[in-house]
Nucleic acid binder design. Structure first.
Lengths: 229, 229
DNA sequence: TTAAAAATATGACATTTATCAGTTCTTTTT
DNA sequence: AAAAAGAACTGATAAATGTCATATTTTTAA
């Protein structure tokens, strides 16, 4: 397993690629690698972060607890994504919890390394800015989906999203397996409602399931549903 | 009316305050001031923007058209806010429309001035980044509200938001008057549903109205409602 | 391997929200 | 000032979603 950031492939996907050799060396020297087991938190809502987490492997859900006691999953972050950036930059406590959806391997980079580069290397700052601009656009889209689409449409969309972003395994099941509860927390609905709609999709032949695993059988039908028939 | 950015008070509220004197001079020389009447667009979803808009006066709604033909208002931007930043930075078309809610005065700043400074002045870039980090956090909160709160709670919250961010007039009405349709587009519901709930609030003595105008009578009750009794 | 716990699933029912049709009030235009 | 257009409002009803109770299956731990 390669442990120098300079040689890490993951870096190609995130803003760290805009760092100079020296800066990268410094990050590499100060970083620590950490294994996080499924279900364990990287950090929790309200914590003050002393650095950011670069995901090498596995998937993390970023969620926020609502007043009614339910978690809302705002984003699923995978290989290459950097978590905690927002709160390190704004120097605030995190507004989100990050919990491993499956076993993960992450690198923790102390905020000093980040802040230092932010102040000295405009290219890096600009790169981070571009990423954040992208995240903001995605967040706007989520807002519109949440408020204008039905639960059925949101679940159909979630399955298509999972296929496009995480792919399928050999047997044609979605590579990222989420519990029914996680699915309901992604689309913002009651777990029972999510289960019911999943059953309906199964009956209609849009998907097939095996335990928690879900496979897409009729992508076109799901797409039509999302678009509103 | 002062027309040099160097002396513009509005600048204190946004990232332009991190510009150097020279940079500000350049922005001031290249900017154009524009009056936008109530209901007119600053720009529309899908357009390619050649610069950003700095709001001097008035309020703009940032919205996105959903598949079912309804607008979702994602944000209300007022004095001091800079619009179009996200799409200029990401070099993409806007994902949102900006329409004047009341008569506005805005300055258009060509993207060259912005991009130029972004590449040369890390302080400015960092300042923009901080603002965007803040916007992203707010967007996350909106996602959670949209998916976890009832329409009633969202409307109560909207009124409190309007009071806190735009204040009240001499007679105790909310200073920013929105049509019932705009309110329903902010909270993501049918206009009739919004009207019905506004009537209910009136009956219960939480608010009072006069035409379109809404005044908050019992802030505590509204707050309790938002928190879930 | 078995018992216990947790997750998934389904039914019955309550609540919330959307839709449609129509009325009244306000604003704009003539 | 009257006519026309657009908002605001209300009622009836349908559809979507949440809640609670309970059964079944799967996973975990003893």
């Amino acid at each position: 397993m390669e442990s120098r950031c300079e040689n890490c492939i993951v870096r190609q996907f995130n803003s760290l690629r805009a760092m100079s050799k020296d800066e990268l060396k410094q990050v590499s020297d100060s970083k620590t690698t950490k294994a996080v087991k499924k279900g364990e938190p990287l950090f929790e809502e309200g914590e003050k972060l002393n650095g950011v987490y670069c995901v090498r492997n596995g998937v993390s859900k970023l969620s926020k607890l609502s007043a009614n006691g339910k978690d809302q999953i705002v984003k699923l972050a995978t290989k290459g994504e950097v978590l905690g950036q927002r709160s390190v930059i704004a120097e605030e406590c995190t507004n989100l919890s990050a919990i491993a959806v499956n076993d993960m391997e992450v690198c923790f980079i102390p905020k000093e390394s980040i802040n230092n580069t932010l102040q000295k290397n405009p290219n890096f700052t600009l790169e981070v800015l571009r990423h954040m601009a992208h995240d903001l656009k995605e967040a706007d889209d989520v807002i519109v989906n949440m408020s204008q689409k039905t639960v059925k449409q949101r679940i159909a969309e979630a399955f298509l999203y999972l296929k496009n972003n995480f792919g399928e395994d050999d047997e044609g099941f979605l590579a990222l397996t989420l519990s029914r509860e996680d699915i309901s927390n992604v689309v913002g609905t009651a777990t029972e409602s999510a289960i019911r709609i999943i059953s309906e999709f199964k009956k209609k032949g849009f998907i097939h399931t095996s335990g928690k695993k879900v496979g897409i059988k009729n992508e076109r039908k799901l797409l039509e549903l999302v678009e509103g028939f």
